[in-house]
Simulated scan of single mutants.
Amino acid sequence: MSEATVPIDVRLLNLTTSVLVSVAVLVGIAAMLWWAIHNPAFSIRGVTVLGDVAHNSAVSLRNVVVPQLKGNFFTLDLDAAKRAFETAPWVRRAVVQREFPNRLKVTLQEHEPVAHWGGQLTQMVNKQGEVFEASGEGAEYDALPVLIGPEGQASTLLATYGRLAPHVAPMQLQLKELELLPRGSWRAELNNGAEIALGRGTEEELEARLDLLSKTAPQIAARHQRAAKDIVLADMRYPGAYALKLRGVTTVGDDVKLAPKPAARAAPRPATRSAPASNRRN
C-alpha cells in the first residue's frame, strides 16, 4: 500500500507514536544523566599517583589538590584538574586520567633543579631553563650554582653558565655564581669567593677571557707565593689584559696587569745612509 493510499488518520497516528517514542528516549537519557551526575557512587574517592614523587606523595596531593576538584567521574574537568595538580610544589607537568567508577590516575613530572635563581632560596631553575617556586634549602642543593639576571633570561644564563664553567676548571676552581647585569655586562663568582668582572661580549669572547685568566693567573699568583685559590678579584674588561687582586699581596693597588702575549717585534729598518757633510745643516 503506497503512502498516498494510507488514511490520513493512520499517518497522524504513526507520527504521534514516533514523536512520543523519541521523547521517551530523550527523557530516559536525561534521567540517566541526572542519576549519574548526582549518584554519590561516582564521586571521586581516590587518586593513584605515578611518575616522579620525590617531593610529593599521594597523601599530600589528596590533602592539597583533591579538595579543589569540582565534579564527579563524569563531570570533572580534566584540564582544570591538570592545572590544579601542577600548582603543587615541584610539579612541572601532570597528566590526569579517569579510572571507572570513581578514581583518578595522575602521572607527575617533577622539576629537576640545576641552579638557584635570583640569589634567594625560594626559586630554582630546572634543566629546561624554567624558573619554578621551590625551597632550595638542604645539603643536596648547596652545590648548585646561583644564576641572577632579568626576568625571562633564565634559559640564557643557564646556557651561558654551561659554556663558561669548564673554563675555570684548570685553576681547580668552580663557577659558583653567574650574573647578567641590567646593562648587559656579566659578573661571575668562584667557589673561593673570587669575583670576576667579565664585561660585555659574546659567549666566545667571555670564554676567551676566562681562558686567559686560567692560563696566566696561577703563574702570576706563584710569583707572589700564592695560588689560584688566593684570587680575590679579576677585572677582565681591559682590552687584551686584566687586573688581578690576590689575597694578602700588598703590591701597589694589589693589581697586576698582563697582556695575553707580547706584540710581535717589528722587523728592523734598513740603516739609512748619512748625508754628505756638505748637505747637512749646521
Rank of each mutant, 00 (worst) to 15 (best):
E99T: 13
N102D: 15
G138V: 11
H111A: 12
K70P: 04
T122Y: 05
G71S: 08
K176W: 07
D142T: 10
H167M: 05
P239Y: 11
A221E: 01
A208G: 06
I148H: 01
D142N: 09
S18F: 12
G201I: 02
P89E: 13
A30W: 14
S185Y: 05
K229V: 02
G248T: 00
E86M: 07
V27Y: 10
A259L: 10
L13C: 04
L15P: 01
V23F: 15
L164Q: 01
L15Y: 07
R273A: 07
A58T: 05
P166Y: 13
E195Q: 11
A94H: 01
A143Q: 14
W117M: 04
E179A: 05
N63Q: 15
A217E: 02
E177Y: 07
P40S: 09
P101L: 09
S18Q: 14
A54C: 00
V59W: 13
S18L: 14
P170N: 09
Y238Q: 07
R273F: 06
V106F: 10
A36Y: 08
N126D: 15
L147K: 01
L158V: 09
L78N: 05
G184F: 12
K229Q: 14
F132A: 02
T272W: 04
T160V: 15
K257C: 02
L181R: 14
A165K: 15
L26I: 15
A267N: 05
W35Q: 11
A217H: 03
P268T: 03
R183N: 12
L144S: 05
A31R: 09
L190A: 09
L175G: 05
L164I: 08
I196S: 03
V23A: 14
D235W: 13
K257T: 12
R11S: 02
Q97Y: 11
T216M: 02
G149S: 06
A271Y: 03
V19K: 05
N56F: 04
P262T: 02
T75H: 11
P262D: 10
A88V: 06
K245I: 11
L158P: 00
L20G: 06
D142P: 06
G253M: 07
R280M: 12
A234P: 07
E140S: 10
W186A: 04
K82F: 10
R45C: 06
A4P: 02
G138F: 09
L258K: 10
L26G: 13
V6D: 04
V146P: 00
R11P: 03
N126T: 07
A197W: 04
A228N: 00
R209L: 09
T251G: 14
A4M: 03
R103F: 11
H55P: 15
L175Y: 08
V96A: 08
R281C: 06
K70R: 15
K229Y: 03
A169L: 08
G240N: 11
R92P: 06
M236Q: 01
P150T: 08
A54T: 10
A80T: 11
A84Q: 00
N102L: 13
R247N: 02
P150V: 07
L147S: 02
A30H: 06
H111K: 03
V23Q: 15
